[in-house]
Amino acid sequence: MLDILVVGIIRNPDEFKATFTYLIQERNRGRVDRIVLSTWKSMADSNADELRWCARNGITVVLSFEPVKTMMGNTWKQHRAILAGLPHVTPDRPILKTRSDKAMDETRNLVEEFAKTGMTRAAGGTLAYKAICLKLSTSMMFNLSDMAFIMNAQDLRKFLNCEGYYDVIAVTSTINAEVRMFSWPFVQRYRFVSEIYENFNIRRISAKLADSSGSEVPEYLLAAYFSYFRLVRANFRLLRSGARPSEGPLERVWQTAPEGLTSKAVLSDGFHLTIKSDEVLTQLAELRFTDSTLKERAEAALARVAGLPADAPFLPLFPIEDMRQFDRTYPGPGPSIRLDPILWTET
């Protein structure tokens, strides 16, 4: 059984009611149980009719004070609303987190996916179950879609944070709301993840990877990104039912369709590449692509970090000059290396 947690303000009353009408229909079908709306106390004045309609239809309404400060992408507001709503869903049950506008198709796709496939156990000890997401970035670590996703209720708590890490320790003004949520449990546990955010502009790395042919990608990035693909596969999955099947092995990793079966998403400093198929994620994690040179280099890079403890950094194992050369080869929007690398140990 699936519980629903809808968060955020009421922007469009018609779209709001359409979303909840669909969820009520799914509840009547027995595929959804509790439906919770977590929004702000100000909605009691501006959207009283919609809230009364929710109450009449068996939807739990949770009102809390809206945070004054929110950080990039309304991060703190979203996390505050989720935290307020979690006590009203069933503990340790799968939760579909969504919003009341602009997410109808995403919500339908996730409800259908869960009805057909259920949840899958995660590996590695960070999460109990794999989160089900609609798309993830292959060029920006942990940039997964946060508009709508399914996650075990206890696991979801591990992603919520109001820390200053991403604005004080990490490279500031480059880390969006999606990364701030989905990377948080892994920043705390895996050193190779946190060192990426602390030493690099991740938007510029993303744009450079997407512009490259793959052969110029530094060995350090190969070790980090293919470790990332494996970490993501162990803790997340994309759609299986109705997803586009793989058309044989991928030709390349950081290329647009059809070679990489990926699509571009615009960023302020360039763009990143996204995938929507769970099979493609598996291919990336297992190095199943036909660019033999890149595959051999990725295997060699992974061999250098094989067996390292989770809290061991990758950076000291690789020369910084390779990253500087990557910046020179793909100047793009600017250098990816932080001007004051705080944890890089020169070798």
Rank of each mutant, 00 (worst) to 15 (best):
L2V: 08
V6K: 01
I10K: 01
R11F: 13
R27T: 10
R29F: 11
R29V: 13
T39W: 03
D45Y: 10
C54K: 00
A55V: 14
R56E: 15
I59T: 02
V61S: 04
V61A: 02
S64P: 09
F65G: 11
G73A: 00
T75F: 04
H79G: 05
A81D: 03
G85V: 04
V89I: 13
T90Y: 07
T90E: 14
P91G: 00
D92R: 13
I95A: 02
L96V: 03
L96F: 04
K97Y: 04
E106G: 12
T107V: 03
A123Y: 12
G124M: 04
A128G: 13
Y129M: 12
Y129G: 08
M141A: 13
D146Y: 08
M151P: 01
A153K: 04
F159D: 00
E163I: 05
S173E: 15
I175M: 06
I175H: 10
F182E: 02
R191S: 01
F192G: 01
S194I: 07
Y197D: 00
F200G: 02
F200V: 05
I205H: 03
S213K: 10
Y220M: 04
L222A: 08
A224G: 00
F226D: 04
S227R: 01
F229W: 07
F229S: 03
F229Y: 15
R230Q: 14
F236Q: 07
L238D: 04
A243S: 14
P249I: 04
R252G: 11
W254A: 09
W254H: 15
Q255E: 15
L261C: 12
S263M: 12
V266D: 08
E279A: 14
T282L: 14
Q283N: 05
L284W: 03
S292M: 09
L308E: 00
A310S: 14
Q325K: 13
P331Q: 01
T345M: 07
T345D: 10
